[in-house]
């Protein structure tokens, strides 16, 4: 598990976000066990208190469940899991909008620009994938 922290957001929230991203991309599946907070602290190089705080936050948000002494697991609540993807996307778009806000660009122009950039990126990515397949 690799995570580069930025130092301006609370570390525990960055950890929570990291878990959300892994869930959204399917790297963590519903019902998967997650490392103990000790292991997590060790893996990420953070203070065990912070790991504890991150897990508490995730429990409160219903992302993970802990039953008795068994290790914590990713929730099987599909509604919560479904919301994560949406939440991350909304958040990312909000950040993006905040940063283009200063440029005062009309909505139409922005959308078309996004479309062309996205298509170009996807094209280059699939090309790269092809290339990699060619090698193997």
């Amino acid at each position: 598990m690799e995570l580069l922290f930025n130092n301006r957001d609370p570390v525990y929230l960055q950890v929570v976000r990291h878990f959300k991203e892994r869930i959204a991309t399917g790297k963590l599946q519903s019902g998967d066990t997650i490392p103990s907070r000790r292991e997590l602290a060790n893996q990420l190089g953070i203070n065990p208190n912070t790991a504890q705080k991150a897990y508490k936050e995730m429990e409160e948000q219903g992302l993970i469940v802990t039953e008795g002494n068994s290790p914590s697991r990713i929730t099987s609540d599909t509604i919560i899991l479904g919301r994560i993807r949406e939440e991350l996307l909304t958040e990312a778009v909000d950040t993006f909008l905040a940063s283009v806000n200063n440029i005062e660009v009309p909505a139409e122009q922005l959308l078309s620009l996004i479309r062309t950039r996205l298509e170009k990126k996807q094209a280059s990515q699939s090309e790269q994938d092809q290339g990699e397949k060619g090698v193997t």
């Binding site: 922290f5 990420l44 953070i46 203070n47």
Partner: peptide
């Protein structure tokens, strides 16, 4: 500092080089 060896202990450390450890500090 991110291991169980310091867990539960109260730690005071002095340093003037914060950069690499800042996410460890409470």
């Amino acid at each position: 500092f991110s291991s169980d060896m310091v867990e539960g202990r109260g730690i005071i450390l002095t340093t003037h080089e914060i950069k690499e450890i800042e996410h460890l500090l409470d």
